[in-house]
Design a protein around this nucleic acid. Structure first.
Lengths: 347, 347
DNA sequence: AATGAATCTACAAGCGCTTGCATGGCAGCA
DNA sequence: TGCTGCCATGCAAGCGCTTGTAGATTCATT
């Protein structure tokens, strides 16, 4: 049998001359234990270096103080910032965070879900992977009583679940309008996979703004990329700029591709923003430092992270009372005007 | 008493018509159970949607498959990239990762350590907070049998512990030499707090290189910042450039301050790299995209993350055999020459 | 002095799983 | 037929904690 390595409440009880239930209650600040006993028990526990075994507590109480976070990856500014804020808020509320990266793999998302269920996490904050199109794994977790909040990349297929998103449609609409205001007339769009709600919304926002302005909406000016990587941006910018009738502005669905679009344009001898305006959705840390600095649509990662955790824990705690009202929270994006779209001086 | 919400091995045992020990063994692929029984049990478990309670398993076996990661923050490129790779490697090896951000607070580091000990994590990978100068909390964890690996920001005060670092001294030396090779003669240095081993090493590397080259090593050209923030970089660059005898190159101990140094220099009308060379330790995603692109010393975050986890798990598994040999792994940095230090065309 | 209330503490079952040891069944051998 | 030996399975204790309930103590009250 295993050796009893660490000291437990039995040791404390013995040293303090009380029973283990008294130790447990004293440590949990139960009203039934006299202040004197509490003080004694605590002193002994401290002296012995006692550290409560959270596993045993969780097993016994059937609840944990940990939330699982499922995100595609950690090395993207928005996501690492989101996780940063999630962790921060969770810490303040007494929760730990288990981080799971799916690498945008559906399989991996499922695997992680099982792990989190097995770990009996209290709740899960998730940003869907790009591949994810079915959601049984989420339903499974919810059936097991695990609360789930979806952030940023969400789905309408899942009901009875809190969602935190930005108004992608509006953000995209405003970004496009900004281009139009600046005087750009032939605007192309580089979209992510529109199976993803957010990319569909962004595309719609773009299209609507162009349409309302009475500008041309050419099919050949709308391109799709499955992963919106730096290289994809380069490739597609190349395609767009090689068209017989090339656009004079490009709106990209993320910021990384905006960078590579600018780089490619400059390689081709085009001046940004004079000959080509470029704007990208979401914001990377370098967006401001680049030359030209990159106009972008900022997503409020701080608010999103905070809200996600707050709502999640609210729901976890609401279990007693019964029904929790699930909401979809839509946050505003912020247009950050920078040099890459500054056509008119009086922009 | 609480309701038994989820199905457990008792349910499976009953449904399969065997005992719980058989279920347990079948699910754990114990050799003593016949293949037929295993198949039957597994089928039933699957049908019932059984999900093993990891808490109970851990409590019973006295071991968990989770490692704690303690880092100052997640919204720095190097650290988020490090954590990314740690998580990735841990996943491959069957471990989950609990992420803890200290915000460079010693108190918080201690708090997290207690949480991790309470959670009975198998091991901890940590990058010390800037504030941390005493290490009892680490010793406490180690006494409890929790393995610890220190990464990047480490200490010599802790013995019997694996450390993964880059050769800060050498990286700094090489970076300085690069400046000298380029023809810069008056080189200033912006250091982090030298209580931190890594900052001390970087400073030494710089000093040694300057000395060996027979260049002046003026006290007024060495500045210190407690946090190396963007603003600090601006402030200190300002100080340096306002000197009666200003430097013509600045080496900063991180990359963020390199950016703000460049920005400030340009505001002051100085041309980079012609009139001021700038190089920064570590690498940010935007280092390459800036104009001028920023010469920097790259730390191999991928290798560091991988190694940290591999060594940690090695040590965890070595417990049976007895003594594990703790090593300090020193990885090479890589000098990424970019425009901000390109004085000679034939650089 | 006896009684009840109010306080405090201990007992023991239970959370869901692992695991050393016991047991039962059966084939093979004499 | 009776015995040994082996294989597959079951029993039950234990991991460290929580918690309903019973029991002990104290104190005030009559």
């Amino acid at each position: 049998m295993k050796k009893k390595s660490r000291i437990n409440i039995y040791d404390v009880a013995e040293a303090a001359g009380v029973s283990i239930s008294t130790v447990s209650r004293a440590l949990n600040d139960d009203a039934r234990i006299s202040p004197k006993t509490k003080a004694k028990v605590r002193a002994v526990a401290l002296r012995l270096g006692f550290q409560k075994n959270a596993l045993a507590t969780s097993l016994s109480t059937n609840q944990t103080k940990v939330i699982g976070v499922i995100v595609p990856q950690l090395n993207r500014e928005f996501l690492s910032s989101l996780v940063h804020n999630i962790e921060e808020t969770a810490f303040e509320m007494g929760y730990s965070v288990i981080v799971c990266q799916t690498n945008n793999s559906y399989e991996r998302e499922k695997t992680y879900m099982d792990t989190l269920i097995a770990s009996r996490v209290a709740g899960i904050v998730a940003t869907l992977s790009l591949e994810t199109e079915s959601f049984e794994h989420f339903e499974k977790a919810m059936e097991q009583g695990i609360k789930v909040v979806l952030v940023d990349r969400v789905t309408n297929a899942l009901k009875g679940i809190t969602k935190i998103v930005v108004d992608d449609y509006r953000g995209s609409f405003e970004g496009t309008q900004h281009l139009i205001d600046q005087g750009y007339t032939k605007i192309a769009y580089l979209s992510g996979p529109t199976k993803q709600l957010m990319y569909a919304d962004r595309l719609r926002g773009f299209q609507q703004a162009v349409k309302e302005a009475g500008l041309p909406l050419k099919d050949e000016w709308v391109k799709y990329s499955s992963n919106l990587s730096f290289e994809e941006g380069t490739r597609i910018a190349n395609e767009l700029l090689a068209l017989e009738n090339p656009p004079n502005a490009i709106f990209t669905a993320n910021n990384l591709t905006a960078i590579s679009t600018i780089a490619r344009a400059e390689e081709l001898g085009l001046k940004v923003p004079e000959e080509l305006g470029v704007i990208g959705f979401s914001e990377e840390p370098f967006s401001a430092f680049m030359k030209p600095s990159v106009t972008s649509i900022r997503q409020p990662s701080k608010a999103m992270g905070q809200l996600a955790v707050q709502k999640l824990i609210e729901e976890i705690n609401s279990d007693q009372n019964g029904s929790y009202i699930h909401q979809k929270v839509v946050l505003d994006t912020e247009l950050i005007c920078r040099d890459s779209t500054r056509l008119r001086k009086s922009g």
